[in-house]
Design a protein around this nucleic acid. Structure first.
Lengths: 228, 228
DNA sequence: CGCTCTATTGATAAACCTCAAATACAGTGG
DNA sequence: CCACTGTATTTGAGGTTTATCAATAGAGCG
């Protein structure tokens, strides 16, 4: 089974031995996804949670009128739907693969058994969940109190921290990011995103192309995000 | 020690016996708060988490410029800062008592010991945390996609579900709710809240006074919230 | 009754969305 | 290599929503 070494470092397994981790991974079921496949849909019964062992996921949420927002990108080594599966409810959001992606799914009984056997798994999860709440709460605060350009700047910086790759030209955000994606992530429209990025490109803060963003002046974006 | 019976029903203790619960409560330290006292400040070291055993808390968050939002109200029997305490970080928000309030605080070592001894505590917590995330995510979605009047309607409905009391005049939201509070909760300004509530009062959907809201036509608010 | 805090209301302006149309770009098949 | 097609992006004009500012009114309290 081709499980990347880096998974040993996945926070959820902190405090466990390698043999234990291997055993746990074997108790899950592997799911392979082609790019842009849906792993689960908002509204589906939440019967499994997933650890990403290759590739990445995009988490989105729709409102009643079909407007979509992007809540988060899930990197390799991260887990998703861990709390939802404990709640016997439906998934509150949709998970879609970005590239070739492999995940391991555990169902509720398995998760419960694991956590009862290794309480540290539940404890680690609680810590990880803190980060998620903190991030949404921060974004919520920003959405309530800041203007679009600030939010777009923050969005790019956040995405950069999650998926940034240093290149000679600047820091490349290694996710296919359309204007629509950025708009859905920052809570605005493609038109506003386009205008804003054009301005920044003129100022030489970024370089952008079709579904591509490279950040050239991170400091400028930070200043803008934090209120000039 | 005057601990209300209803605490036996607190979800975090699901699966434990009454004696076990009593023992756990004794391992925490009681804190008494007068109305409007600060239990902890955003930015303080997160060294304890708290279970509310009497009264209620208001959770708020400030941005860099001092703009405040209200994230949540914590009722009697609920817990707060449970994940923050595990992360050795600072509190991401401020907790303030609304009325006479009593909480029990546990520090990190105690929480860890409790969860290792009773894994179900951690598991219950994970489930509870799901509800919090779900709520913020929903509010975030609404903030991104809906207009002010919808958000104000949703805010009143949410607060009603948390603190509503049936009276002959309608459902009274039993929290001192100023226009400022509603604005901070719905992500808008006191002016817009005032105008909106005035309209609804004319339509006889609500009755409002100084820091007081009574909902008379819940269905009207629901229709509005869900997009006319 | 005067003081303070909260709420209302009107006028104005800013921010941002919407719509329409043009343009750029990537990939495909000839 | 080029034209073609389907997206993605840009840009302008116009309109809506909502914030801001200023001034007034009302409620509660000593």
């Amino acid at each position: 089974m081709p499980i990347s070494i880096s998974l040993d470092k996945t926070e959820i397994f902190d405090g466990l031995t390698n043999e234990q981790i291997t055993r746990l991974l074997k108790r899950g079921k592997e799911v392979k996804l082609r790019p842009k496949n849906i792993l689960f849909h908002q509204g589906d019964t939440a019967d499994r949670c997933f650890l990403v062992i290759r590739g990445r996921l995009k988490l989105t949420k729709l409102n009643e009128l079909g407007k979509e927002i992007i809540l988060r990108y899930i990197n390799c080594g991260e887990i998703t739907a861990a709390t939802a599966v404990l709640r016997n409810q439906t998934y509150p959001l949709t998970a879609q693969s970005i590239d070739e992606t492999v995940v391991i799914g555990w169902d509720k009984p398995t998760m419960l058994a694991l956590m009862r056997q290794y309480p540290d798994i539940a404890i680690n999860l609680l810590g990880m969940v803190y980060d998620r709440i903190d991030e949404v709460q921060n974004r919520y605060l920003e959405m309530c109190t800041e203007q679009v350009d600030q939010r777009i700047a923050r969005s790019l910086l956040r995405l950069m921290r999650r998926a940034g790759i240093k290149t000679p030209a600047g820091i490349h955000i290694d996710i296919p990011l359309s204007r629509q994606n950025i708009a859905d992530y920052a809570g605005t429209t493609i038109y506003t995103v386009s205008r804003t990025l054009s301005m920044w490109e003129k100022k030489n803060w970024i370089t952008s192309g079709r579904e591509k963003i490279i950040i050239k002046d991170q400091q400028a974006l930070v200043s803008l995000a934090e209120g000039v």
